[in-house]
Design a protein around this nucleic acid. Structure first.
Lengths: 155, 155
DNA sequence: TAACATTATGTGTTGAAACAAATATAATAC
DNA sequence: GTATTATATTTGTTTCAACACATAATGTTA
């Protein structure tokens, strides 16, 4: 067992290899998201909200239906409606009802929403660079490949 | 960019290397925790609760103070008290007030708690093995080392 | 075209997380 | 030995997430 895991969780006995990976992955990811949420807190948006804004900015000036957003979320959330509700209340997105399919409500990012993402993105980039400073480019690529392999054929 | 990431998030342009790592890490970890929480749901406990039980089982028949538990959590939670409240209500842990330091409340896992962990652990092990089936032992070790490097010198 | 299934979103409710402030005890400094 | 500071936990409050169910529109099929 690595000494970092040992220090972090104060484990007394060596966990099986495939449990150790899972633990390390969870710790690393939680560490990352904590850093990012701290940045987002300054702008009074949550990680989930930022995720939605990031997705909508990608298709601006078009919008996305709720289910299209749900598919693209990093952490899948069953309750996009409420996340959009809050973003709408803050004036960061707007809902549009289309005539083609009146079930759908298309959500579009507003100018104010774009502005926030434009302010947040560089800070997030810097944080990512700093958080991964212990890894070389080669190691980053390797880590990307290994994690992608993990979720490859999962629903 | 790997095609798995491409498929999962439907990205149109290549993100910078160090953002790609962060995305992949978050997706993989979320995938893992989703699988585990599905198992835990059958026993009506949350991931955080299981985490506490796992920690307390490690020191049984002794217990831990609240802050000792907090330090050992995989995802750091500012609100262990409430998690313990709920576990206590379910009869899975008990609180003991020690005479040495009357500020502290020592939490100990009960027999019923141990029973649940003993039922859950094998299922979690199997899930971990299945979830990492795409990786060889060597790749698992590598992934462990890389993720440990990430959170190494972080608070 | 009426009936049924499917898809897309919204609502109601309950339980849990986040953050700040409060309480209680212990350790330290003077 | 009292005042101050630090530590350990709990409580209050507000916001957020999860789950099931409800509503509405579309698609499909006899």
């Amino acid at each position: 067992m690595g000494e970092n895991l040992q220090n972090r969780l104060k484990l007394t006995k060596q966990p099986p290899l495939r449990e150790e990976v899972a633990l390390n992955l969870a710790i690393a990811a939680s560490y990352f998201s904590g850093k990012i949420e701290k940045i987002l807190g300054k702008f009074e948006i949550s990680g989930a909200q930022y995720n939605v804004l990031r997705i909508l900015k990608g298709v601006y000036p078009e919008g996305h239906a709720r289910c299209a957003i749900a598919m693209r979320m990093i952490e899948r959330s069953p309750d996009i409606t409420r996340i959009i509700d809050r973003l709408e209340k803050q004036g960061l997105v707007e809902r549009i009802r289309t005539e083609e399919d009146r079930r759908m409500s298309i959500t579009k990012i507003t100018g104010k929403g774009i502005e926030i993402v434009n302010k947040v993105n560089p800070l997030v980039s810097i944080e990512h660079a700093e958080s991964t400073a212990n890894l070389s480019d080669e190691e980053c690529k390797l880590l990307s490949e290994l994690t992608e392999k993990l979720y490859k054929d999962m629903g």
